[in-house]
Simulated scan of single mutants.
Amino acid sequence: MPETDLDRQTAYWDAVADTKRFAHPLHEPWLAEVDRAAAVLDYGCGYGRTLHHLEQLGFRRLSGADTSPGMIARARDLHPAPRFEVLDEPPALTGTADGSVDLAVLFAVLTCVPGDEAQQGLIAELGRVLAPGGLLYVSDLLLQDDERNLDRYARFAGRYGTHGVFETGDGAVCRHHSADRLAALLAAFETVHTRRITVPTMNGHEAQGMQLLVRKPLDDGR
């Protein structure tokens, strides 16, 4: 299902493409046994920070996709080796064949896609392009328990109809998740690893997050 404008927010991401810094860490031990010739896709790659880290680890078949032409332009300038594409009809990866990806990376993307159906569609599309046995590495933000976040959850709950969806001071609409919500989104996959992290947000606030490494079943019923 195509994303709505709220689930893309392309104008916002283009406007901040040259200024935002992302910080979700790549936990290298989780990828130690992954073949460096694996086909790797970073969905919502932004300016290519995580792909650059993967390149430094020796991965050679790297591609990134994002809805923001501004972010992709910055990524191409900074990191010439990976292949980058702008998503015209997200979450559709129209140039990526079924089962052609060995490792998909989804870092701080679900927080930028606030709608339930859009999130579900994104995970389904990644499931389509992943090979049986392929890995999906998710990193995202949990519901926070500090006063600042609790206040904005309450303030925007009526407008968006979902606890944890809120507006940032610079105009983005974001979503924080319960651990159960993340698990439900990934229920079609087999869990390999999970861990809690503390990470700076794109606006410089410390936040609690979760990382999950999951595997597409060898027989997914199709």
Rank of each mutant, 00 (worst) to 15 (best):
P82W: 12
D66T: 05
S68Y: 01
F84S: 07
T4C: 04
G158Y: 09
L130T: 06
P2N: 10
R49F: 07
D5S: 06
T94M: 14
A118T: 01
A104Y: 03
F84V: 08
P82R: 14
E167F: 10
D7F: 01
C112K: 00
H176Q: 14
G46K: 00
G171S: 08
T67D: 04
K20C: 02
T168Q: 11
W13P: 00
C112N: 08
D66S: 03
F84H: 08
H79Y: 14
F189V: 12
T162S: 07
H193M: 10
A131G: 01
Y47C: 10
G171I: 06
P132H: 06
A75W: 00
F107H: 03
D98V: 14
F107R: 00
L185D: 00
D145F: 14
T10C: 01
P91N: 08
R21N: 08
E33H: 09
D7M: 01
R181T: 15
C112F: 00
Y160G: 01
E167P: 06
I197Y: 08
T194Q: 14
H163C: 08
R175M: 08
V199Q: 07
Y12R: 00
R83M: 11
V105K: 02
Q9N: 03
E125G: 05
Y12E: 02
C45F: 05
G46Q: 03
M71A: 07
M210N: 01
E85V: 15
H193K: 15
R74C: 09
L141S: 09
E206F: 00
R128V: 05
L150K: 03
F166H: 04
V129K: 03
V138E: 05
L103Y: 11
G134Y: 00
V173W: 01
L136G: 04
Q208H: 13
G164W: 01
